[in-house]
């Protein structure tokens, strides 16, 4: 009888699925609390890129943002940035005013007269290339990934443009390219690194406020800078372990 057969094979199917499900449960039981980060720092002595930005040296000229837009063909409209500069102004009334007109490219104005300013400084922002990057963790298709050198990249020929990584990035470093319909972000000028050139923003900085290099090499400029200065990262509480270190970072900066 057909129905009998159906019944039997369904039981088979259920048996198989329950075995599979049981297997999954079992594996997760013997391997408890394994964190599901997308990437793991590779072992061995490859390069592991990190960045340091010295806020004390930043003059807010936004040449980093300007050159980045040119070098990487980023849209000129003020909604798409791989790299931008923010101006923080803390008034004597302890009010925190932040501005970033066109990512700093249009130049900065102080919002209050100088005698009302308690403290003011610039903070250049870019992708933090986190070690435990939340953006690559959530990519449903594996189009966003961390390269073996520790650079968070997007495979634009594979990205489906769901925007989940844009939501997952706590630093607002990703955007959807309105023409291609895929995500775009800082690549630390991966194409320039491979040619032995400095990333465009590093090259453009007139005061050498930006440093990058190999964190595995403890004698590299960036490693020494981090060692000698009291550096902090953004949003440490989220445990994204950024590789972008700021010297003299004020706690008001988010």
């Amino acid at each position: 009888m057909a129905i009998e057969k159906k019944n039997f094979s369904r039981r088979d199917f259920i048996k198989q699925t329950s075995m599979f499900a049981g297997g999954v449960v079992f594996v997760s039981l013997i391997n408890p609390m394994k964190v599901v980060y997308a990437t793991k720092k590779p072992e061995g002595k490859g390069k592991w890129y990190g960045i340091a930005i010295d806020i004390e040296k930043c003059i807010g000229c936004a040449n980093c943002a300007r050159t980045c837009k040119i070098e990487n063909d980023v849209h000129k409209e003020p909604f798409f940035f791989r790299n931008w500069v923010e101006q923080y102004t803390i008034t004597n009334d302890e009010e925190i005013l932040v501005s970033s007109p066109n990512g700093g490219i249009d130049g900065f104005e102080q919002p209050v007269p100088e005698e009302d300013i308690y403290k003011t400084f610039f903070v250049p922002k870019m992708c933090n290339h986190c070690t435990k990057s939340p953006c690559t963790q959530v990519c449903p298709v594996g189009a966003s990934f961390e390269s073996p050198e520790g650079i968070a990249l997007v495979d634009q020929t594979y990205c489906i443009g769901c925007g989940y990584c844009v939501q997952a990035c706590p630093y607002g470093c990703r955007y959807i390219d309105p023409d291609k319909g895929v995500v775009d972000k800082c690549t630390l000028c991966y194409h320039r690194l491979k040619d032995g050139l400095d990333p465009a923003c590093m090259m453009a900085c007139p005061t050498h406020a930006r440093i990058y290099g190999d964190l595995n090499d403890k004698e590299s400029e960036v490693s020494l800078f981090i060692k000698e200065h009291n550096c902090a990262v953004l949003k440490q509480q989220l445990n994204t372990v950024p590789k972008l270190y700021y010297n003299a970072l004020s706690q008001e900066v988010h």
Partner: peptide, 15 residues
């Protein structure tokens, strides 16, 4: 879990 070739494709862009 990604396309290994993407690395070279990204690196191929002309500075």
């Amino acid at each position: 879990p990604y396309r290994g070739k993407a690395l070279t494709e990204i690196a191929d862009k002309v500075p």
